[in-house]
Design a protein around this nucleic acid. Structure first.
Lengths: 235, 235
DNA sequence: TAAAAAAAATGTTTTATAACACATTATCCC
DNA sequence: GGGATAATGTGTTATAAAACATTTTTTTTA
């Protein structure tokens, strides 16, 4: 992609009225803009790795990104799915730590990195934006705690159903109003749902045979949302 | 406890140099002080319940508190153990949500509640403190994500060992240098470690028979910290 | 201080899900 | 375009941990 398009892609984070940075003065925005980098990551590329040091606030302008941790015996657990106009890796940045998880582009993605020092210089004088970022993190902590309970207590069917609903929530549906706008491998779906790939495949098949969903390769369409929600709630 | 002692107990949060509120002006501190309440909760009493609306920032001056969520079939998962000089329920406060978990005093506890509006009026003009609170939340989110992986992937022995180490970390050791300064029921220990009470009891006994720990009612002493850490890491 | 209730301990059975094995089908890339 | 590699699909077995059952001990309270 041409450099110009990259810059346009990052425009939102500084100039859109919905962006949390909109309260900034023109001068402050210029300052942030002068200290940012836009980058393209191809499908499958690592954006950052567990242990890396954050260099700034990463904004996802375009694409899909999974944030995951390596667990027992290298087994992967997907902690979060990031969608456009969201932030990535800001937990480590604000905790003053190295990344505690890795981020990988699930499709070609554009990110915009607001350099750390310039950002903190502005946040130091701007509690409104800091509070807005804090709200995002508070939301995420709530989700994380809820997920801990779901992933530990729900049975396989409930966990997988919950993951499908999470994907709908995060990435929405295609024009047909039923196809999940995200095309994950069975393995990623398994790592999102805390189960083996075999069990993800098997349970998807079962869901399809129950007419909860339909399958066509990686394309998953939701045929009965109500029932899927019930499976997610009840197990 | 006399009201005066209660006020003294809350003194730290406003006046101790280590408190995140120490950068405030005298006037701001007075304002916060004018809008705070101190309360005593007896062992076993609920401080707040899932669904309640936060009224302010709850500071734990004294005691031990568990924060937990109800899961599948009412099964409890302890999300966090709070210790003195820490904050409770601030996630919901900053997310602008009702509480997503409940808090219960595990022993007689003193809390100090800084009233919401007064607090936000001050935070609005004070990014330094807001950033300090954000750091706390970022730390907690990191812990939560790590716990999700541990609780889902580790085996029972690993999970229980991790919980014992967490208790040491949170509440420290008694004078003897090996007894955990927290006396939980087997049930709480189980709910912290995502297992049934029976299995917590059984696994504790096994640890004792392996001379990793010694047991005397609720008193748990760590005999071999290195080995316990290895069990936590390896499963 | 006795009775009741709760907590702890322990043995047995059942079950959900991981682990394994292998076949089939896509997709990558030389 | 075809060989290699990765992803998907399915049946079988093994096992960790829940569920269940019962006893013993401790704590509460009447």
């Amino acid at each position: 992609m041409a450099l110009k398009n990259l810059e346009v892609a990052c425009d939102y984070f500084l100039n859109d009225p919905d962006s949390i940075f909109s309260p900034l003065s023109e001068e402050e925005k210029k300052d942030l803009f002068a200290n940012h980098i836009c980058t393209v990551y191809k499908k499958g590329e690592i954006i950052f790795k567990e242990g890396d040091k954050p260099t700034g606030l990463i904004c996802l302008a375009n694409g899909k990104v999974k944030i995951f941790k390596e667990g027992v015996g290298g087994r992967e657990q997907i902690v979060r799915m990031a969608s456009p106009l969201g932030f990535i890796g800001y937990r480590a940045l604000f905790a003053g730590q190295n990344y505690s998880g890795s981020a990988l582009a699930l499709e070609d993605s554009i990110v915009c990195i607001l350099e750390k020092e310039a950002l903190f210089n502005i946040l130091k004088n701007n509690a409104e934006i800091t509070l807005a970022l804090m709200k995002k993190m508070a939301d995420e902590l709530g989700i994380s705690n809820t997920r801990t309970v779901s992933l530990t207590q729900k049975h396989i069917r409930g966990r997988l159903a919950e993951s499908l609903l999470l994907l709908v929530d995060t990435y929405g549906l295609e024009e047909d109003g039923r196809t999940i706008r995200a095309y994950l491998s069975r393995e990623d779906l398994a790592n999102l749902s805390n189960m083996t790939t075999s069990n993800a495949i098997r349970t998807l098949s079962t869901f399809a045979s129950e007419n909860l969903i339909s399958l066509e390769g990686r394309k998953i369409s939701i045929l009965d949302m109500k029932k899927l929600e019930r499976v997610s709630d009840m197990g």
